[in-house]
Design a protein around this nucleic acid. Structure first.
Lengths: 230, 230
DNA sequence: GATAACAAGATTGTTGACATTTTTATTGTC
DNA sequence: GACAATAAAAATGTCAACAATCTTGTTATC
């Protein structure tokens, strides 16, 4: 909120800030795949000039988050189920290697923090607090990548997630996903505390793979071909 | 060249085309880290309007390839040795998993093509044709990722490479890097032909790691702290 | 009522002009 | 010659106006 206030105190938000705003709207499902991003609407809602809004569109297009068509403007890009598969495969590889690295070189404090977050999530599972679980989960994964000393990977993963964020939110509510995820986390934390790199990597890959399988099953149940595909 | 001709036949290049042009200049070391990208210069050289050039800057900034400072414009971003390490770690993870996948599910034709390219590269090593080796090497890695059925990873890796491309070019000329790389490729191809996923993954990770070590040694020899860092 | 042609409105693409800031060149002083 | 102050030039940031295109609503025709 600090940034937003600061932006308003000045004349208006920068292109980067507008892009962040749009990204947050996508994450919270207020903007869904296929939806058109009309310039004037964004201007009204952010206070940014047309110039800044168009800057933001270019940046988001480069990230692959929006699609720009000539004379039709920007719209939120969706991902096909096949692209989702590729996304998750990439995440499994990247976060897997971070887990291994974390297990070998994280500080004691980082390890403890990782375990604590996992414990908190378990409480959320029993107490039925999926939103809080989602936030903790995001923190947990970030901590792991940061502790592995790889901000580049952290950045990539954050971008990879955005196209399916509107789904993650829903999926956390349904089925036994929370319980399963908590169990996965427990395995990873154990390997980390044992300083067992390969085990941590394998457990992390399995964890991501489970998330993907859950998404696939969900999609098959709803039985439309793509996930927000347009 | 086809695209460039087409662009000239029309009124001028699009923002994406200007971005591609800048990227190619960086790849060929005609633009080096720290160098400022003056709008009028780009306009003169590409024929694009100022509008398009600024679009291109935004896209490249989103990719992390250029840096934009207020009232100072865009400049080519360099990478610190620590960032290079993170980059290579990410590549090792991503290409490693692609190698494993390729070994399991590539078509016979793709396998043969992979082996053929490796053979061609060996010839280049003996014949002393490093530029051709570089091209073949790029094709080889692309083929592997495409054959693994993961265009998302292919895209990420391409971006990851750009900030160090001006180095790759030099490094191919020096020392025994070519010979070493050819040997690595041989190991990977063997694992692929054996349909041994884990072996392919391990060999690929080692290959990327070797490339990183070579870069590190080179940097230590030249003994300045960063690689095009500004 | 369905459809096609047309017109009005909405939306995006592009350009040029001007404001702001940085960079470079010049001058004056010691 | 070194340095600081100043002015000129260069470069970037911003905006408003207009052009090109798409979208929507209306009318005419069958």
């Amino acid at each position: 909120m600090n940034d937003a206030v600061e932006a308003l105190a000045r004349k208006g938000p920068t292109g980067v800030e507008v892009a962040d705003w749009i990204r947050s709207q996508i994450r919270s499902s207020r903007l869904v795949p296929g939806q058109r991003l009309v310039e004037v609407d964004i201007i009204r809602q952010t206070g940014g000039s047309r110039f800044k809004v168009r800057e933001a569109f270019q940046r988001l297009a480069a990230e692959g988050l929006v699609e720009i068509e000539e004379f039709r403007g920007a719209s939120v890009r969706g991902a096909s189920m096949d692209e989702v598969r590729q996304l998750y495969r990439a995440r499994a590889a990247l976060e897997g290697i971070c887990a291994a690295e974390f297990a070998l070189k994280a500080t004691d404090e980082q390890r403890r923090k990782l375990a604590d977050l996992a414990d908190e999530m378990e409480v959320c599972v029993e107490g039925g607090a999926p939103e809080r679980f989602g936030q903790l989960n995001s923190d947990w994964h970030s901590l792991l990548m940061r502790g592995a000393g790889n901000a580049v990977i952290e950045d990539i993963v954050k971008r990879l997630n955005t196209p399916v964020h509107h789904l993650l939110f829903e999926t956390f509510y349904k089925g036994d996903r929370l319980r399963e995820a908590a169990r996965d986390h427990r395995l990873i934390v154990k390997a980390v505390l044992d300083r067992d790199g390969p085990a941590a990597e394998m457990a992390m890959r399995q964890h991501i793979e489970n998330g993907h399988r859950f998404l696939t099953d969900l999609d098959r149940a709803v039985h439309h071909g793509g996930v927000g595909e347009v």
